[in-house]
Every structure is written in C-alpha cells, then in structure tokens.
Design a protein around this nucleic acid. Structure first.
Lengths: 206, 206
DNA sequence: TAGATTGTTAATCGATTAACAATC
DNA sequence: TAGATTGTTAATCGATTAACAATC
C-alpha cells in the first residue's frame, strides 16, 4: 500500500530481483547495464523502473546489490514466506509441488488438494493430498495466501470459487479457461498451449 | 508472412481460438460480446483484433464460429501439427510430456532429451528419453519446430545453444534465466515464481 | 578534471477506449 | 422499420525511448 507502481514495471521487478539474487556479493555494485543484460531488458528501462521505487543509485557508480534486493522485495510484498496451496494433484500439480524454484523466491507449498479418491491421501514432496472439501476449513489456519489451479478446465471455476470461499485472494490458474472471481481477488493465468501458439505465429511470420 | 498483426493482438488470438474451440457447433454464430466473455477481454478489443485479421463478421449478427476458427488458426500458423522437443526429463519436463492440453491445440511432443544417465532411456508417455548429444542429429529428421527448456537454470544457455544448432527457431524457456540466441530465433520465457511474485505485489497493495 | 552513470523531462510510439457510422 | 452488432476513425491513455542535465 505504498505508492503505486505501473503494471509493466511490476512485471519486470521479479526479473531484476532474480538477477540480483544471482550476484554473489551483497555488497557488490551493479550498473543499470548489468541489470539489463541479466534480465533481458534495456538499461534505460531498468533505470526508469527503479526510479519508480525510489532506488537510490549513485551516479557514475551504480546500484548497491543488497539494498536494491531489499527494496524490490519489499515493493513486491515479499517480506515473509507466502504459503501456497495447489489444487489438482495430477502431473502438473505434482511437478509444481516438487518445483525447487519457489522456495528460494519467497513461497512455500503448504497444502495440496484433489477430489479423486486415488489421489487424496497420497504424499507429494512431504505434503499429504487432502480432499478439496477440506480447503475452506484448513486454508485460514495455514495462512494460505496464494492458490494454484492445476486441474482440468472443467473444474477450474469450481476450484476458484472454493479458493475464494477459503479467503484466498490471489490465484494462479493453469487451466486454459477464464475463471470469474469477485472484485478484490486477483487471477493470473498461465496457458502453456497459448505460449506455444504465440511461438507458432513467429515461426510462420518473420 | 501475411500482413503483420500487432503483438498485443497476437497474444490474445490463442484465447479467442480456445473459446471458439469450446463452442459445440461449427456453424454457430457468436457475437464479439460472447467471445469477450469467454476470453476475459472487452468486446471492443475483440472486434479491433478481429478486424486486423480481416474477419468478416456480419453486422447485427456476429461471427461464424467455423470460419473464424480457421482464420485465427491460419494467422497463428497452426496449419499442421507442430512437433515439439522437451529438454529436461525432471518433474516439469515429465509433466509437460504428459500434458493433455498440447495435442488438441496443434502440438505434439515428439522427443525428450536429458543428460542424466538415470533419465536417458526412460520412457515417458511413450517417448524414450534420449541423450542431449543426439538432439542436433535427430531434430531435423523429426521436424522439431519448437524446443522447450525444462532444465535447471545453469543448463539453460547450453540447451538453447544446442536447440539453435539443431535448427530449432522457437524456444519456450521455463528456466528462470535469460538465454541469448541469434537473430531469427524467438524465445519466450515462462517463469513460475515470477507469476507468484506479481500476485504477491497485488496482495500487498490494493 | 574526465569518465561513467543515474535520473528526469520531453518526445514518440503503440495500445486501448470512445464515439459513431454502416448495415444486416 | 427497429434492434443488434460490426467496423472504422478519432481521442485518450500508458509505456517506451530519446535527450540531456546532474553528479559521483
């Protein structure tokens, strides 16, 4: 609830942060050129974005890695580890539960849900898959901040409803359908086939 | 290599197509409002995008589902099934190989590669995992059009180099690092932790 | 001082939205 | 004809880029 940051900038901050985390020394100094090369954007873009945060770089020198990390992490609200629940214990949900890249970047998968009798009770990466019906009851106690939908498309809206009911206000939806949520709830969609289709466009043109 | 379509429009066409595929009847007629509701954009946006394609809607009536599907599919270059190779047979690569959503949308996973002795030789969804060294030799024969990088970050650039060497001109990169490729090769990046961090921003603001 | 680099202001560009004419 | 809906042109908005001043 600090000053507002343009959406396009918000989308790039995680990439800057990831690059900064890869710099070995916290006390190192990096230029906007360095950050740009490590994040795949232009240096001017980086400076513009960082100026929105009030990042105090030093002219002629650059930005101090440690303080910049802290500033971006705070801007993104990454102050504590955020508990995540995955709904859908199929291939994708299971792969996400195993995914090593979440922990180091501020997230912890704390619960998994499914409706299939075969899957409920299974243990995935130390987490016991629970029945979806238990979600609304358990999520508040676990402090679930983000829900991931990794179910078939036809279950996605139901799952979204259940997540909202459980008080979850951020949803990452891997099912290729639009889910409707009340105001105040944010949904981001990742559609894998869409990504391939965009690549297909570039293959056939240019 | 038809007339050029704005990038923002290209990014939405797959969503329109997905909605149109969900309409049971090929001969049905849908309005821009219908498409908008099914794809999570505004109706004006839909009409503007479709006008870029020269989609012949009928005033007072709408768009014919079958011909619109064909038009969008052609614009995206989805005329034949595109063969895909997945590099990295870990949890994510395996989940992608199993993923049901590719086939119906124009793609077929035709090969998997890894470097680990444990994984090479394994069979995933009917595909035998091969050693990465075989990629450049095999990809042309298989007609691989798109390569998916599902390896740890530190292998991503090497894999990208190998894919390029194998003649692959479209890459979908799941590793959270920037990979550099020569001009003429397109890379799209999907970073799962980035998606969560953007959600985190919205949680802490607004 | 000279070189490097940030940070701001203005200009450009592209994308979205508004308004409305066209027409089934 | 009246109602619905497309499709285009103009206006607005936001994001990127250019230019350059500031300063370490």
């Amino acid at each position: 609830v600090t000053s507002t940051i343009p959406p396009a900038t918000v989308g790039r901050l995680p990439r800057y942060l990831r690059f900064l985390e890869s710099v070995p020394s916290v006390s190192a100094v990096v230029s906007s050129e360095d950050i740009a090369a490590g994040s795949g954007v232009t240096a001017v873009q980086v400076r513009k974005d960082l100026s929105h945060l009030g990042a105090g770089g030093t002219r002629g020198v650059g930005y101090e890695v440690g303080s910049l990390r802290g500033l971006i992490a705070r801007a993104l609200g990454l102050v504590t580890v955020l508990p995540v629940a995955i709904v859908g214990a199929g291939n994708l949900g299971t792969a996400l539960a195993h995914y090593k890249g979440f922990e180091s970047r501020g997230f912890a998968v704390r619960a998994m849900y499914d409706v299939s009798g075969e899957k409920v009770g299974a243990v995935v990466d130390g987490i016991t898959v629970r029945h979806l019906d238990a979600l609304a009851r358990e999520a508040p106690g676990l402090g679930i901040a983000i829900g991931i939908i990794a179910t078939p498309s036809d279950a996605a809206q139901l799952v979204a409803d259940r997540l909202v009911e459980a008080g979850v206000r951020s949803i990452l939806n891997f099912a290729p359908v639009v889910v409707l949520v009340p105001a105040g709830v944010t949904v981001r969609q990742v559609d894998l086939a869409t990504e391939l289709q965009i690549l297909s466009y570039h293959l056939s043109h240019g």
